[in-house]
Design a protein around this nucleic acid. Sequence first.
DNA 1: GTCTATATGCTGATAGAC
DNA 2: GTCTATCAGCATATAGAC
Lengths: 195, 195
Amino acid sequence: MARKTGSHSEITGPKVREAALSLFAQHGFAAVSMRQIAAEVGVQAGALYLYTKDKQSLLYDLMQAHMDELLAAWRDEPKGNDALSRLEAFARFHIRFHLERPDAVFIAYMELRNLSDENFANVETLRRRYESELEAILRAGQAEGVITAPDVRLTTMALIAMLTGVNTWYREGGRLSRDAVADIYWDMVRGAVGA
Amino acid sequence: MARKTGSHSEITGPKVREAALSLFAQHGFAAVSMRQIAAEVGVQAGALYLYTKDKQSLLYDLMQAHMDELLAAWRDEPKGNDALSRLEAFARFHIRFHLERPDAVFIAYMELRNLSDENFANVETLRRRYESELEAILRAGQAEGVITAPDVRLTTMALIAMLTGVNTWYREGGRLSRDAVADIYWDMVRGAVGA
DNA sequence: GTCTATATGCTGATAGAC
DNA sequence: GTCTATCAGCATATAGAC
């Protein structure tokens, strides 16, 4: 049965990652100390090293987990067959997924330069894999003749920047619901690709 | 005439700001030490405090100067009279101005959380002033009946995010010239607002 | 105007007691 | 599994010599 002292590894591990996520998003990776993370979890600084090799791994694990979840969630998202309904599915999915985890999104964009070279390359690979999902939809749309994109790669980057931008201003309980925002953004996406 | 030793304040001051700009953009404000900045300038750390009150002021001065330049440059930019040509002028201006100073743009977006409360509020005021320039154009376009924007504030944020996003992928000497990029983005902006 | 030297405090990470 | 204690190093900022 339950032990009285010490062993909380199944609880403490996730708590460490949650605390790091929140603190990194608020103050930035470089500005957060291991002691701050430990205090947030309710342990001493030394105890963190039972759950992470070092501070760098803590950051990398958060970013990799985020990108893995993103790719898996899009893989499992219901999508239509034609390019236009796939594009709509992507736009709505991207907004929803990103609004659901603002801290992880913020870190994934802001802390890339604090990754080691190897870790950076791995995260970049995952990011490009996600971008290429949208790119493929746009190419299909062009082949079907339902959209206009003079440069698919460039349109991909423009649309992702526009959609991700929602995170910078959206506030829960604000003027517009998430669905209302997604409706308007989908209209703008459609217009931007001439559909 | 020219003194032999010491007095280089007219040179060193700007050099300090240039070095800080470059290093903050590369590694992040919190990760850069005053010693690193001093080394880049070619002086000892203590000498920096002749040119800045402290590290925080160094960051704030860079961001404020950037926003001031942005607003002044847009004010002086030639613009048409009708809303549609003003919108085109804004889109092309925004891309050009931001591509010309990637480091300052990067810092202005990434280091907001490292500003003191008061400094943050000041920078935010300037940023909103710039956003409201685009907002006014969109409202005029609606009044003229040449664009469709179900929510002007939201469209403002979407367009700015899309346009600023160019900085994340554009590389000098790449596949497309700045003008070619601006042409394509202007098409997307026009489509997004149904013009 | 710039230097050296220094005060004071926090950093990441480890060793060993319990 | 967590704690305390500690190491070695670097941080910002200042004081005073030149």
